[in-house]
């Protein structure tokens, strides 16, 4: 396959995943502002920081303001990081790699674009917002489902999957990076309203509230949340899970090509941070430092994959 195609698949699925993650974050922010309005401003700020768009938002709109942030993240044509811009970029990449996609995958991503283009043509009214966020999640799920059900399991599929998990892990890590301080063992003021709000934001922004309840019961314990999102291999949004998958998908490519590349070693090194690890050791090392190391290493891995498989020249 062409290097450009590998890159196009990787980015198409990254953009889709990112749009979906941004929808989750809006959902979390919306929930907080509806139920705990006093905490809304600081939570919106941390959401903006997690998306990496705090600076551009502030430059354009100034102080955090719920409706403005929602419009900015959803559809603002001046925000290249909006959900709509992400879906457009995903579709543009899909057009570039059209020959690598099944008809079902192409139609799912094209329809996702057409439906959202219409739904997000104007600012979305409050009452329509939950529905709009649902449509975004649903449409990206269609693309994922079509890929899973129809794509041949070869290098193309693996590059698509690597893009998905790479973006997802990045997203989880950035949320943790924003909120690490309320997950530290020193924070034991269980029941403090402000902590409860922040824990809720973390779980909502990663769509893991229900999974947390199923696996850990109702009581929210920051240490358990940290373990859950970093080390729990059962959770499809945890760092350990995503990197397990990235390692596997890179391994399949190496096997298909009969050759191992430098990126394989980098991925393995990241995976080894999670395997057999426990939270105490991570806390001893420093949660903030651990996340920082992770983000730095994953950026390097992304660059190495791009070089090893000749995405561009």
């Amino acid at each position: 396959m062409l290097g450009k195609t590998a890159g196009g698949l990787f980015w198409m699925f990254r953009y889709l995943e990112r749009a979906e993650n941004t929808a989750r974050m809006i959902d979390a922010g919306l929930r907080i502002s509806l139920t705990r309005s006093s905490a809304a401003e600081s939570e919106w700020t941390s959401i903006l920081q997690s998306t990496g768009l705090h600076g551009s938002y502030t430059a354009m709109h100034g102080a955090p303001d719920g409706p403005k942030i929602i419009d900015f993240l959803l559809r603002d044509p001046n925000n290249p990081g909006s959900i709509m811009a992400g879906i457009e970029a995903a579709r543009e990449n899909a057009r570039v790699v059209r020959t690598a996609l099944t008809r079902e995958v192409w139609e799912a991503v094209n329809e996702c674009y057409m439906v959202l283009k219409k739904a997000l043509a104007e600012p979305v009214a409050d009452r329509d917002l939950p529905r709009a966020l649902q449509v975004i999640r649903q449409r990206s799920a269609f693309v994922r489902g079509a890929s899973h059900g129809t794509m041949v399991r070869n290098d193309m599929y693996n590059f698509a999957r690597i893009g998905t998990f790479f973006e997802r892990a990045d997203n989880t890590a950035r949320i943790l990076d924003q909120k690490y301080y309320i997950l530290l063992p020193s924070v034991r003021l269980v029941g403090s309203p402000s902590d409860n709000v922040q824990w809720e934001t973390i779980l909502r922004a990663t769509s893991t509230t229900r999974a947390y309840q199923t696996l850990h019961g109702g009581d929210i314990d920051p240490r358990v949340i940290a373990h859950f999102l970093i080390l729990d291999g059962r959770l499809p949004r945890s760092l350990a899970f995503c990197y397990g998958k990235i390692g596997e998908n890179l391994g399949y490519i190496a096997k298909e090509y009969g050759e191992s590349k430098p990126c394989d070693a980098l991925a393995e090194a990241i995976c080894s941070r999670f395997e057999g690890q426990d939270m105490n050791a991570i806390f001893d090392y420093g949660l903030h430092e651990f996340i920082g190391d992770f983000l730095r290493d994953s950026t390097a891995l992304g660059r190495q994959i791009e070089i090893d498989y000749r995405f561009s020249e």
């Binding site: 396959m1 062409l2 450009k4 195609t5 020959t99 290098d155 490519i253």
Partner: peptide, 30 residues
């Protein structure tokens, strides 16, 4: 894209190609 897809051929742009050892070659992952 349609014709490339239907023929099972690669769809290339100028920046995917260069002359290597007297042949026009496309940059693949390998």
């Amino acid at each position: 894209a349609f014709l490339a897809d239907q023929m099972g051929a690669e769809l290339v742009e100028g920046h995917d190609l260069r002359v290597v050892d007297g042949r026009v070659a496309m940059r693949t992952t390998r």
